[in-house]
């Protein structure tokens, strides 16, 4: 066997790949479920926090900043582990799936809140004044004038952060979530061959490349003629 054949046999072993393809595919499904849940709940919660913060209620804002800073500084793995192994002490026993979902959603919420907030504050004060001077309320101004401009600014950093955090679904392996990496590593142990890991890598690319492309598409769609 040449070096090249040996390499192929080790990392791209057709027999192993065929055998474990169904496992990887079911892992893909779990990853998609997790990712969709994390993205939707994390971004909605982040936007909601940013909107609440724009009301300018001091004590509430301190609380938001504290929570957001906390979840931005903790490693996501630590949050997942704490939730999965720690919460049962408080008589709440979330599954590995739920622990991973909630943990990463909290992290995405925190980062996206900061991004939304930066977008909102970057809109010139004159936009608020012009809208308010025509009789628009605070809420109407926020929704019709400020947010459309702010969201457009936030899309590039938001896309990056969302992808980075959603890839963290792989951390679910430590709490026995059967997502892509979990399926791939157990397949590796069972087959004594790392080919499933390559399938896992391919699955991540297939999954996340479209997200990057969609992000870019939204960016161009939201750009207005200057």
């Amino acid at each position: 066997m040449s070096k090249w054949e040996k390499f192929l046999d080790t990392f791209f072993n057709a027999r192993v790949m065929e055998k474990y393809l169904p496992d990887i595919l079911s892992g893909v499904l779990v990853t998609i479920e997790l990712a969709v849940l994390i993205v939707i709940s994390g971004l909605v919660a982040g936007l909601a926090l940013a909107l609440v913060r724009s009301l300018g209620l001091r004590p509430l804002n301190w609380l938001i900043i504290f929570v957001v800073d906390l979840f931005r500084s903790l490693p996501p793995l630590v949050i997942i582990v704490l939730m999965y192994f720690g919460l049962p002490a408080a008589d709440v026993s979330p599954s590995g799936f739920v622990s991973t979902w909630i943990s990463l959603a909290l992290v995405l919420m925190s980062f996206s809140e900061e991004i939304f907030w930066a977008g909102i504050t970057s809109i010139p004060k004159g936009q608020w004044e012009a809208a308010r001077s025509t009789g628009l309320s605070f809420g109407q101004t926020l929704i019709n004038v400020i947010l459309p401009q702010a969201l457009r600014l936030t899309i590039p950093p938001l896309t990056n952060r969302t992808i980075a955090i959603t890839k963290g679904t792989a951390l679910g392996t430590v709490v026995a979530v059967t997502e892509i990496l979990g399926q791939a590593s157990s397949a590796v142990s069972n087959s004594y061959n790392p080919s499933p890991l390559m399938m896992g890598a391919a699955a991540y690319i297939v999954l996340f490349l479209p997200v990057v492309v969609i992000g870019r598409w939204i960016e161009t769609k939201f750009a207005w003629k200057r």
Binding site: G126, E129, A130, G135, L136
Partner: peptide, 19 residues
């Protein structure tokens, strides 16, 4: 908000909504 409809204001920097 109701009263402000009766009071138009024009600003130095226009402050049109760019979007």
């Amino acid at each position: 908000n109701h009263a402000r409809q009766r009071i138009g204001m024009v600003f130095q920097s226009f402050n049109l909504y760019p979007h």
